[in-house]
Amino acid sequence: MALLEISQIKKTYGTGEVALKGVDVSVEAQEVVALLGLSGSGKSTLLRCVNRLVEPDSGQVVLDGVDITSLGKSSLRNARRTMGMIFQEFNLIDRLTVLENVLAGTLGVTGTLRGIFRAFHGDDIQRALELCERVGIIDHIRKRADQLSGGQRQRVGIARALMQRPKILLVDEPTSSLDPKIGREVMDLLKEITKEAHIPMLVSVHDIFLAKNYSDRIVGLQGGEKIFDQTTASVEADSFDQIYHEAS
């Protein structure tokens, strides 16, 4: 069985918007799966259903044998600790320092009192600094997060997600807010790090180039449905045409 099994996820928002119409995706250990689709095809919704930032209407998500969809509040928190999430808009806490933002990744396992007073464990600080070094922001750790450039901010986002020692990374259009060149650097970094740490990654993109160059497998989404699911090497040009032309 795959590390992450998403089956028959359906989601209709309160506004009546049907975002997902029953999607299956699986991610094997150490695999990079790209979710490819146009804007509005449901990529973000699907990723958010995995850690239930968005509550799916029906379907099942199983991560490493744990049925996420059936968990109660506190066990859901435990499960979220094992999934690192990286956001399109970075979602850093602007007024905290880079180091504090990275350390925020440990909040799930830090005691409440320590968390509130930002009294993190020495080991965690050590690890946060190592991650900052790894993603190339060690020189900026004392700056406030809003003083960084977009590329640097996404690196902080990556370090924060890795801080959780995740079993899987959920990555939502990590490069859409960045210049193409910086975006490729960030993707390179993500790919290297996931390889080094043997972490699988489910990453949404809307750019064929990124999907082809950085993934092992591509899942095509259109209008909330999966329209193909193939290894990157075997994807044919007309699969892409399906996404980009028939939609219009």
């Binding site: 050590q126 600094l129 190592e130 900052c132 070094e133 060690i138 750790i141």
Partner: peptide, 12 residues
């Protein structure tokens, strides 16, 4: 441990 990390750690 890398040197600048330990430096940063001490400083922190």
């Amino acid at each position: 441990m890398k040197e600048n990390v330990s430096l940063a750690f001490d400083r922190h």
